[in-house]
Amino acid sequence: MAIIITDECINCDACISECPNNAIYEPDQEWSYSDETALAGIVQTPDGKEVDADGENDPISDEFYFIVPDKCTECKGFHDEPQCASVCPVDCCIPDENHVESEEQLLVKKAWLHGE
């Protein structure tokens, strides 16, 4: 399951540097799969979609920091718990019920993102 940042976010910037997958972006910031990952060019996601890893995607939020679900692994393979949630001063980094994944799926995604 990916993590989501709720509208209680105070845009403090504490979480962004903690994410090992560079899945957290500032409000209104375009994002790409290749940002701080091993991905480049046309790639197939673990769930079978073909995407341009270098392509710029529209921001998910224009008001609050946001997490790209396709890049979030809940820090599996890096840490015992999601680092964004552990550093958030207002507890707005919570499990995203719309993106439920098993630990195995999250580890596959981590390997995909980092070329392992």
Rank of each mutant, 00 (worst) to 15 (best):
G48S: 08
S17I: 06
E63W: 09
T73N: 05
V87W: 04
V100A: 15
G41L: 02
I16K: 08
K76C: 11
T45W: 02
E74K: 14
A14D: 15
C92R: 06
D80L: 13
S32Y: 00
K76I: 00
C19S: 05
S32I: 00
F78N: 11
D13Q: 13
C88A: 07
P89F: 07
S61D: 11
F66W: 04
Y65A: 09
D7Y: 10
C84D: 03
D47G: 13
N11R: 10
S34T: 06
A40W: 06
C19M: 03
S32E: 03
C12Y: 03
V43T: 08
P89R: 07
E104V: 11
G55V: 00
N22C: 14
N57K: 02
D96G: 13
Q83A: 14
P27S: 09
C84V: 02
G48F: 05
A85F: 06
S102C: 10
G77K: 04
Q29E: 14
E81S: 15
E63C: 12
P46H: 05
K71S: 01
D47H: 12
H79S: 14
E97Q: 15
I24T: 03
A38W: 02
T37N: 06
T37W: 03
S61A: 09
Y33S: 02
G55T: 00
C19G: 06
Q44K: 13
N57W: 00
P46R: 04
Q29P: 07
P82E: 00
I16R: 06
C15Y: 02
H99R: 12
I67K: 05
P69N: 11
T45E: 01
T45D: 02
E30G: 15
A23L: 07
D7N: 15
Q83C: 11
F66C: 10
Q44E: 14
N57C: 05
E81K: 14
E30M: 13
D35F: 12
D35V: 11
T45V: 02
Y25L: 00
E63L: 13
N21M: 09
D28S: 15
P20S: 08
E36N: 15
D96C: 12
P82S: 04
C75T: 08
N11T: 04
L39Q: 09
E50I: 14
H79T: 05
N57M: 06
D7I: 00
A85W: 01
L39G: 05
E74R: 14
E81T: 12
V100Q: 15
G77Q: 03
V51Q: 08
K76D: 09
E101F: 14
C15M: 04
E81W: 07
Y33G: 07
C12N: 05
H79Q: 06
N98E: 15
S32D: 08
S34K: 12
C15S: 07
V87D: 03
H99I: 07
